[in-house]
Structure formats: structure tokens, C-alpha cells
Amino acid sequence: MQITVTVNGAERTVEVEPRLLLVHLLRDHLGLTGTHWGCDTSNCGTCVVWFDGTPVKSCTVLAAMADGHEVRTVEDLATADGLDPIQQAFSDHHGLQCGFCTPGMLMTGRWLLDRNPDPSEQEIREAISGQVCRCTGYQNIVRSVRAAAELSQVKGARA
């Protein structure tokens, strides 16, 4: 079947099998390997992308379901002006070790901050509670999301 999905702002038309999962559409058909494919059971959360502006676990969404919809992946965070504050904060605060969970953590972190620009540590922990860091580096991930909130506030104040 033919589907047309808006990925990171660009319309992409692809011929796919109905059983193709969204994560594999992104990685194997569109070459967007920033989104990782992990547990395959919607537990680990490294495959989190935005579907019409809401984070979902793309290993449990059919590519066919995205036909006519918008998908945003980690590749869309950085702009010509540089890294998104959430990326900068992960870099500054050692929010990643092996990096496998990072794309999902970044997409959930960005979404949290868009909805709640000043989250508490508890709110951050709850937001990423469906995502596993196999390095168990949660302290620094939480610290990084918190730092991104502060970075955004500083930037906002200057603007």
C-alpha cells in the first residue's frame, strides 16, 4: 500500500506492507536512524517519536496508521541555529552514556518542557517512567531535563 506521511515537516510517500512498523519506516525506508529500535514490546521507549505532536512508541504503531499524519523525530530537534536546549543540556550534563535511550529521552523531554516549562524532579521522573536507560544513568538524565528547563528560561529572559 502507498502511504504519505509528513516527517519532520516534509511529505514522504512510500510503498509499504501493512505490517511495517513506524520505527522501521523511519529507519529503514526513510534513513532516519536517529530513532532507535529497542525492546519491540513498547516497554523501553527508545523508539519514541511524536505523532501529530504527541509522543508514541513507534515500535507499536503501524506505518499505515501514520498515513496522512505528522511524525517528528529526534533529527528535527536541532536547527540551523544549533542544538535544541534539551540536546545542549544532555551534552552539558552527561545525560547520556551509551546513547541508546537518548533519542526517546530527548523527544519525551522536549514534549514535557513544551507542556510544563518548569517541571519538578518528580514530574520529570514520571514523564520518563516508560523509558529505560540501560546504563541506569537516570540521575543525569533528570538533571539534564531540569537544566534544559533552566536554559530555556534564561534564553527566554534574554529574548
Partner: peptide
């Protein structure tokens, strides 16, 4: 489940 699963 978790917040991301609850979204879908």
C-alpha cells in the same frame, strides 16, 4: 502503563 503508552 506509562505516560507514552497512555498517549496512544
Amino acid at each position: 502503563a506509562d505516560p507514552i503508552v497512555r498517549n496512544w
